Amino acid sequence: MQASVSSPRGESRAAKAARDVIEGVTNYPVWATFAWQDIRQRYKRSVLGPFWITLTMLVTIAGMGPLYGALFKIDLHTFVPYLALGIITWGLLSSLILDGCACFSAVETVVRSVRLPLTLHVMRAMWRNFVMFGHNILAYVPIMLFLGIAPKWTWLMAIPGALLVLLAAFPASIILGIFCTRFRDMQPIVGSIVQLAFFLTPIIWKPEALGERAYLASFNPLAVFMEIVRGPIYGTIPSQNIYLGAIGITVVLYLIAAPLFVRFRSRIAFWI
């Protein structure tokens, strides 16, 4: 692993933060290796490994699909793919948020003992969750076979959507990582908010169920990022406003994360 180069004397905090970001993001061999080690360690003694999560998602979809389809009186051929893609995408969004809270505190030994860019640990958490999402999407294959859903070229639109999610996850992880490292009570609070957000985000329900208030769903940032990934695969290409909303949220996150990281980057190791 390559340790970061010692900073020149007299270098400003902004320059140090910028160099941290550049070195952390571009040091792919280190954060990718760390991410793979995290996955292997988590499922070291498991027969199915991370595919346990995929299997759990499939069982959840199989149980919730017919139930909520009947409750909302929606045809299963329409509702089950919507629910399946919603749960799979939510797995990515929620894990990025929760792991973002612990992106620094969970690796306190490394932060204290090795001089590495702090943003490298952010990339490590993001890449770990993106790999998990890559095999969790396989839970959709049995549903495709059962319902006779054929792949379409429009599905490729989900790729830029997923990349935009990761682009937004970077500053969000920095913001959450800083606050949850400084105030340890914030991490369980964020976890509770994420649990509540599951029911407030159109995953097991459709915005149309709100009737005249369907527009309220678009004010949920998680619903916006959910749609740019789920929509193309489900068969509804997100509107221009959805993409503009996702880009706008991403820009705001960077505007918040940048000054926070510049000011508190040097204190994170002491807070840990």
Rank of each mutant, 00 (worst) to 15 (best):
V21R: 01
V21P: 00
V21E: 02
I22N: 02
E23C: 07
G24F: 14
G24Q: 04
T26K: 10
P29C: 06
V30W: 00
W31P: 03
T33H: 14
T33G: 15
F34T: 00
F34P: 00
A35Y: 09
D38K: 12
I39F: 02
R40Q: 13
R45Q: 12
L48D: 11
P50T: 07
T54D: 12
T54N: 09
T56D: 09
L58Y: 08
G63M: 06
G65V: 13
P66C: 02
P66I: 02
Y68C: 11
G69Y: 08
G69P: 15
K73P: 00
I74V: 15
D75A: 07
L76N: 08
H77K: 13
H77L: 14
T78N: 05
T78D: 13
F79K: 07
Y82H: 08
G86A: 05
S94H: 05
L96I: 08
L98H: 11
L98A: 14
L98N: 15
D99H: 13
G100I: 00
A102H: 11
C103T: 14
C103E: 03
C103M: 01
T109D: 15
V110N: 09
V114M: 03
V114C: 02
L116C: 05
L116H: 09
L120P: 14
L120A: 10
L120H: 04
M126I: 14
W127P: 10
N129R: 15
F130N: 02
V131G: 09
V131F: 00
H135Y: 07
N136K: 07
L138S: 04
A139R: 03
P142F: 05
F146V: 11
G148I: 08
A150W: 07
P151M: 06
P151F: 09
